[in-house]
Amino acid sequence: MDITERIADLAAPAAEAAGLVLDGVEVHPGGKRSRVVVTVDLPETEVGSADLDSIADASRGIGKALDEADVMSGEYLLEVSTPGTSRPLTERRHFMRARTRLVVIDLVSGDQARGRLVEVSEDAVVLDGAAGEVTVPMANIARGEIELELKRIEED
């Protein structure tokens, strides 16, 4: 088991205790101090953003677990954050977390689909766009991106 997997095994329970899920771990060696980047997110069933208190709780729990296991030899800097809106949507769970958001999807064919992500099933996503609702099979999706909206229209 490499260091990244070991950290993931220790970080996942601490993230879950804070109501979050582990999204990824990166280790960047550097001089005297390595940088450990742990990405956490809300569970895929949730819509919205992780609050700072939950991220802080996860950070404390992850730091404690890493220190107790003495998994890092030497000093390290721990960064715990969320993926943010710039994360590419490449997996079903990414699309689940992006429900209600405006997205642009690059299709395998080279075309694009754009609209508000209203539904995600096991094998497709449904977008509400200019032409109405469109179902896009997961097999046809190369990747997607969330479009940043500075002002969201309130739902009735």
Rank of each mutant, 00 (worst) to 15 (best):
A124Q: 14
P88A: 11
T4C: 07
E44D: 15
L20I: 10
L52R: 10
D9A: 14
G84P: 12
A130W: 02
R97G: 07
S34N: 02
V40N: 09
D128W: 02
E44T: 11
E155Y: 03
P88F: 02
A98E: 08
S73P: 04
M72L: 15
T45E: 14
P83I: 03
G74Y: 04
I62F: 06
R92V: 14
S49C: 00
I7M: 05
T90P: 05
A98L: 09
R33H: 00
V25G: 03
S109I: 08
T90N: 13
V126D: 00
V47T: 14
A17M: 03
E46F: 11
A65K: 13
H94A: 02
L102S: 15
M1W: 06
A56D: 15
R116I: 02
D111L: 10
P83E: 04
S34C: 01
A124T: 08
V37D: 12
D128I: 03
D156F: 03
L102E: 15
V126C: 00
G84C: 07
I141R: 13
S121E: 10
V125S: 09
E16S: 10
T4W: 00
E147A: 10
P43Y: 09
L89C: 08
V103E: 09
H28G: 01
P88G: 04
S81M: 11
G24F: 03
A98F: 06
E16Q: 13
I153Q: 14
R143L: 08
A18E: 09
E26W: 01
V104D: 06
G31W: 00
L42K: 11
V134W: 01
S121M: 05
I105E: 01
T90C: 09
V120A: 09
E44G: 13
H94F: 01
D123Y: 06
T39L: 04
E149I: 07
S86R: 12
R97T: 06
S49H: 11
S109N: 14
D106P: 06
G74P: 03
E46T: 11
E154Q: 14
R93K: 15
I105D: 01
L150A: 13
K32E: 06
E154C: 01
T39Y: 01
L20Y: 09
A11N: 11
L78E: 00
A50Q: 13
L77E: 05
K151W: 00
A98S: 13
I3G: 01
S54D: 03
T135S: 15
T4L: 04
R99A: 07
A98D: 08
S86M: 06
R60M: 01
V47A: 14
D51Q: 12
S109P: 09
L10T: 07
F95W: 15
G30R: 14
V38Y: 07
V47W: 02
L66K: 13
A131P: 02
S86W: 02
A18K: 10
I7V: 12
G132N: 11
R60L: 02
G74C: 08
T135Q: 14
K151Q: 13
D128H: 12
A130F: 03
E68Y: 02
G110S: 12
L107R: 15
R92I: 12
A113T: 04
V38T: 10
